[in-house]
């Protein structure tokens, strides 16, 4: 019998994280993925990692830090750590005002530019795609706009995330009603198949254009290898980073975008004091950043 109940109860003393351990873990996390855990989130890190300590049978967070650094299991544990420190609050059709910008002209202008160059290739990068709701939404929008002409275009969507577990979930394409809470009913009917118990499966026609990959936004070398994009979506990801990391990430997006390309960041995020390289384009209820050609 192994269950969360029997695993969680223990007669060992409750472990707490001291400031030195917190400092070590915070620096380690920052070095590995650029995510900065502020002091007031220490309790959150402690709570979330406690289960890892119990699972691994470790006595202190100091031991956990050593375990992460060790060759034995540290690499595997890194993934578990990434899953613990990132939250995956998202949904299909999140922040519709931004998506409207894409639907109502921006995508068409990118397509027109490509046609002028005699190309039907477009590359979109969803950086920080979590469990896949964003890239699938983008592909649904492409289907809605292009309809039968979708097959005439070679539009690829690269969807990356730090956590392999969420990518595996994204690749399965199975969602609860909660993930669809902001999705129009007609869209659900067209692109999802109910599979019972309030769960839905994304249609294979949507799935086939999306390529999921593990990505660490703190790894500049890895980012350089990503195919250059016409559009980048990186919404609600910058909030995890401190200012220096935000600057590095935005700089990498600038390098990845083709001239004239567009960057979407979260509706509550801003590049103010982060970067001046993009030209902000103001739409009703949304700002999109353009790399000038």
């Amino acid at each position: 019998m192994t269950s969360s109940f029997t695993k969680s109860i223990t007669l060992r003393k409750q472990v707490t994280m001291d400031d030195v351990e917190f400092g070590h873990l915070r620096d380690f996390i920052y070095e590995k993925c650029g995510i900065y855990i502020p002091d007031n989130r220490k309790y959150l890190l402690e709570n979330r990692l406690l289960n890892r300590l119990r699972f691994l049978g470790l006595r202190t967070f100091g031991e956990y830090f050593y375990f992460l650094k060790s060759d034995q299991g540290g690499k595997t544990e890194l993934q578990a750590l990434f899953e613990v420190i990132t939250t995956n609050e998202t949904s299909f059709y999140r922040n519709p005002a931004q998506l409207k910008v894409l639907e109502n002209g921006l995508l068409k202008s990118v397509m027109d530019e490509q046609l002028k160059k005699g190309s039907r290739d477009i590359h979109i990068w969803s950086a920080g795609c979590s469990t896949g709701e964003e890239p699938y939404t983008l592909e649904i929008i492409l289907h809605e706009i292009l309809k039968a002409q979708r097959s005439l275009w070679n539009i690829t969507i690269m969807a990356g995330d730090l956590s392999e577990a969420v990518l595996a979930s994204a690749a399965r394409g199975e969602y609860t009603e909660y993930a669809l809470r902001t999705t129009p009913k007609a869209i659900i009917a067209r692109y999802f198949t109910p599979i019972g118990n309030g769960r839905y499966l994304i249609n294979p026609a949507i799935k086939k254009h999306i390529f999921f990959h593990q990505i660490n936004l703190n790894d500049r070398a890895q980012l350089r290898n990503i195919r250059r994009s016409h559009i980048i979506f990186c919404r609600n990801v910058l909030i995890y980073f401190d200012e220096a990391m935000k600057k590095r990430v935005i700089s990498s997006f600038y390098d990845n975008l083709l001239p004239g390309g567009y960057l979407f960041i979260g509706h509550s995020e801003s590049l103010h004091n982060i970067s001046r390289v993009f030209k902000p384009i103001h739409y009703p209820s949304a700002i999109v950043y353009r790399k000038e050609g």
Partner: peptide, 10 residues
């Protein structure tokens, strides 16, 4: 070029 300015600045 803003990208060049940005890199020099950083």
């Amino acid at each position: 070029n803003l990208g060049v300015q940005d890199a020099a600045d950083m």
